[in-house]
Amino acid sequence: MSSVRSQVLADLAQRIQEIETSCHSRRQSPLSFGLAALDELLPEGRLPAGSLVELFSAAEGAGAWTLALLMAKQACGEWKVLVVVDGQRCFYPPAAAKLGIDLDRSIVVRPQRQRDAFLATNQSLRCSAVGAVVGWHDELRTLDARRLQLAAEVGGGVGFLLRPLGALRAPSFAGLRLLIAPIASVDAARRIRVEVVRCRGGRNGQSVVLEINNETGHVRPFSEMASATASARAARASG
């Protein structure tokens, strides 16, 4: 009986410490996004499990969903389930399958109302079988944002919240906030600039340009300088 009591006390002490120091549960191992260029922006190259990641983009078609799904795929690992909360009913699984998302391990929740989308995200994040939750959240109250963060800490998964640029000013509890900006290119592989707006325990303001192949789901860092040099050499060569 005394051992059970001491165990409970130890757990509670750890939880208090976690709350006080704003650090996540040590019982859950941190995650890698599997994208080396992006991992370098994180403290110790990994994101703590049980976190929220907010991705902001100014326009549709910028590539935020693609990046979120690629990161979610890594967060799910070998056996966990991906939940896509699709309130807009626009998520198209054939394209997700092309990115390497395992549809047999995916659940798409299609709520009618924004409030239901929050509820689905919150409940899914609390489930330890869910590796990642991806969804669009236009408006999120401060209290709700906090609830999502707590839910993620309970479940140990990662919540990828896709948000409009206007929400950047709203208070946030996310461990990582990324600003996604597309870069115009004529190549089949698309390029996006990923800027770290806020990273808990890391440096803010860093950015990286990623090249994503939508057909294969491959991601690699892209050097604008190298590309400009190559273009200039090609232009000189052509005369």
Binding site: K80, V81, P93, P94, A96, A97, L103, D104, S106, I107, V108, V109, R110, P111, Q112, D116, L119, A120, Q123, S124, R126, C127, S128, A129, V130
Partner: peptide, 26 residues
């Protein structure tokens, strides 16, 4: 964890409607 997943699916399906919690099939 999979027991938790069953419970999650039950909760969401009964609150949001059975058609709102789906599995995609190509």
């Amino acid at each position: 964890a999979f027991q938790e997943l069953s419970a999650l699916i039950d909760r969401l399906s009964n609150r949001l409607g059975r058609n709102a919690v789906t599995r995609p099939a190509l």
